[in-house]
Amino acid sequence: MSLAHNKTEDYLFKGLLLVGLLFSLSIFVVLFFLIRSGGHFFISTSISETLFFDQWFPSEQLFGLAPMITGSLLVSALSLALAGPFSLILAFFYFYICPLKLKSALNIFMDIFLSIPSVVFGLWGLVVVVPLLAPLFPPGQGLFTASIILAMMILPIGFKTFVATLQTIPNECLLAAKSCNLSEWSVFKDIIFKSYKRKFFVGFLLQVTRAIGETMAVLMVCGNIIQYPDSLFAPIRTLTTNIALEMSYATDFHRTSLFFCGLLLIGFIFILLLISRTDEMKYEK
C-alpha cells in the first residue's frame, strides 16, 4: 500500500467530498424542489385565502388550509399532553425507582415498541379502538382516537430522550440527595425538575416534532373530514393526511397547494428545531 502522493487520489477525494457535501446539504435540495412545485401557490394566493380560510374544495378553487392546520396542531398538542408527562414519569421511574432486574426488561420492551411501524399502530387503532369508541362517540374516528394512537407513537422517543438527559446528572448530586434521605418526589421536583426543565422542554419539543410529521397512523383513525372539531371526538384532517389523501389525483393548481402544505410542515418543524436548539445552547453556556 503506497502512501505516496497520488494526484488522481487528490481529485477523487475532492470529488467524493463534494458528493458528501451535496448530500449533507440535501435539505436544501428538498426545499428547492418543494418551493419549485409549491411556490406558485404561495405567490398566487393570499394568507387570508389560505392560512385563515376554512373551506377546502379544490374543485371550486377554494383552498382554505385553516382546518387542517388546526387539526395538526390540536392532535399534536393533545398527544403531547397524553404522552409527555407519561414518558417523563416513566423515564424517572426507570432511572431512579426501578429495580435493576426490571430495568433491562423495560429497556428492551421500549426498544421494540419504538420500532413498531406506524401502519401497525394505525391498524390496531382502526380495528380495536375505533369500534370501541364508535357506539359511544360516533363515528369513532376523530381527534381523540388520533391523539391516543399518536401518543403511543411518541412515547418511546420521549422516554429515550428523558432517560438520556437524566443520565447526565452528576452522580454526586444523587448521592448527596440519598444521604440527605430525600424522598423521591422531592428529588424529582426540587432537584431534577428545577435544573433540567430546559432539557425536558427540548424533549417535549422533539415529541411534538414527531407528532406533527406522522401520517399513516393518523390517516387511518382521524376521519379525514375538513372541519374545525366541535368536540373532542369529532373527525378532523391534518396537513399530513391531506397530502396523503389528495396527492394521487391532484391536478396542477391543487397539486401545488399540496406541496405548499409540505413547505408549511417543514416550516413548523424547522421553527421547533430552532427553538429547541437555542434553548440547548443557552443552557450549555
Binding site: 449533507s24 446539504l25 440535501s26 435539505i27 436544501f28 428538498v30 424542489f33 418543494l34 419549485r36 412545485s37 416534532t209 406533527i212 410529521g213 406522522e214 401520517t215 399530513t240 397530502i243 396523503a244 396527492m247 399540496l258 406541496f259 409540505g262 410542515l265 417543514i266 418543524i269 424547522f270 421547533l272 428545531l273
Partner: peptide, 19 residues
C-alpha cells in the same frame, strides 16, 4: 442541515421523491 432532514416528516419525503 442533517438534523432538519432527519426531522422532516415522511410524507414530505414522499412528495420530494415523487417530484
Amino acid at each position: 442541515s442533517i438534523d432538519t432532514l432527519s426531522a422532516t416528516p415522511s410524507i414530505v419525503f414522499g412528495l420530494i421523491g415523487n417530484i
